[in-house]
Design a protein around this nucleic acid. Sequence first.
DNA 1: CGCTCAATAT
DNA 2: GATATTGAGC
Length: 506
Amino acid sequence: MLGVSTLRSPSSSSKADQHCGGFVGDHHVVFPTSGGGSDCCDGFAMVDVDDNLLDYIDFSCDVPFFDADGDILPDLEVDPTELLAEFSSTPPPDDLLLDTVSPAAVHVDDEAANNKPPVVPDDDVKQQQLAVMTTVAQEEKRLLEEQTCGDEKHVAASKQTTEEDSCAGAAVSDTKPSASASAEGHSKKKPAPGKNSHGKRKVDWTPELHRRFVQAVEQLGIDKAVPSRILEIMGMDDCLTRHNIASHLQKYRSHRKHLMAREAEAATWAQKRHMYAAAAAGGGVAPRTDAPHASRPWVVPTTTFGFPPPAPPPFCRPLHVWGHPPHAAAADAAAAAAAAVAAPPAPTAMLPVWPRHLAPPRPLPPWAHPPAVDPAFWHQQYNAARKWGPQAAAVTQGTPCVPPPAAAMLPRFPVPGMVPHPIYRPAMVPPPPPPPPPSSKLAELQLELDTHPSKESIDAAIGDVLVKPWLPLPLGLKPPSLDSVMSELHKQGVPSIPPAAATATG
DNA sequence: CGCTCAATAT
DNA sequence: GATATTGAGC
């Protein structure tokens, strides 16, 4: 069932640690430590799921947005490629450069992107602004078409043949400058670079183009979005074909499905975190830095529980096309409604975003048996970074390599009542007892995950194993058994929670 | 016309 | 090897 065999080798990991130059998962991100009595949530951001979560959740975002002080790097928040496309003649609005993450700041829509002042205008001003917006929109479209269709469109406008031919260069940023047009069409074996066997250029889905696409999809609603209508709304039928849209839509839905699964996963973590919080509030103890076991790798001094509750994941701004930036959300109410349909509200009001790769790479214990993170993800990220990644390169080069805090050596499943998913456990461990009957949404989720873990949830869980900042466990160290952890907790006076109560209390 | 799937191209 | 495109079949 599970292809859980490979794991990141210590050598490659240490290599990445040294150089920190690779784009894929090789960054070190400074996570707040749980020591010193600081709140482990510091430096993390929560996301209001009332906004379209999928607009800015990108669990695969590769770029750390935290510097050595744990601050979000504001100048890396915006994709320069998009800025270039959208604000080629104007500087980006200030509110696109986010210093802090707040729902208001996060939700930067097209109005903000168009520099429209966020005030309620009177009718005259409104009409003027409408005209301006229309002009801006038209201009934006013109610029986009110029950008995406290329000059070829204008050259071939008079000898228009087919719509594919006329602007087949759609969004092509040819990365092979050696490919000359003169060589085109001579060989039937090998079509010219960037073109397929039919002479049609491959559509390069730039972030901006994708943003348009997503906007159209959201406007229509994910269920009613069909290629023809999307194409109609995008208004780029001279650059794209229905097949292009259909293909992209297919991929988009696939990715969306993936994200939804991860969203659900994040929701369960939010629920679990509430459990931790509730348990800590009920039976918390003072930090015991002088505890006899404090030097043991998996006993870390913390404020309350002996183990830190699951911290909300750091906010991660999406940068590649599948995780378009927030302002890609449609500006009007209809689009917002469609977006709401596209991203149904999660069980909790605040939902953590959990980019799996934001943690520093670290070796994993042999017993974990995690598979490699979906290689498709990394490859895509890598390619996206190469294609659109000035920001990625900048971040990569400028990101300090900070080793993970040594103090964050924790037990993996130390929480009373929490039964780790089977994939977390050693392979030879006998199967767990059947879960209790679902008495709550969380219990249902737990049951669902335990009994029918989807590929996505498995992937997500594996990703969690790989990156959970409080879960580093060096090679050679065996994790403590649940019993030993419980015993330790008992010594510290932490009351245990019956499993049923733990899963039933949301 | 749109979807899924598979083959193919890049 | 991943992704985009394309065609077949429905």
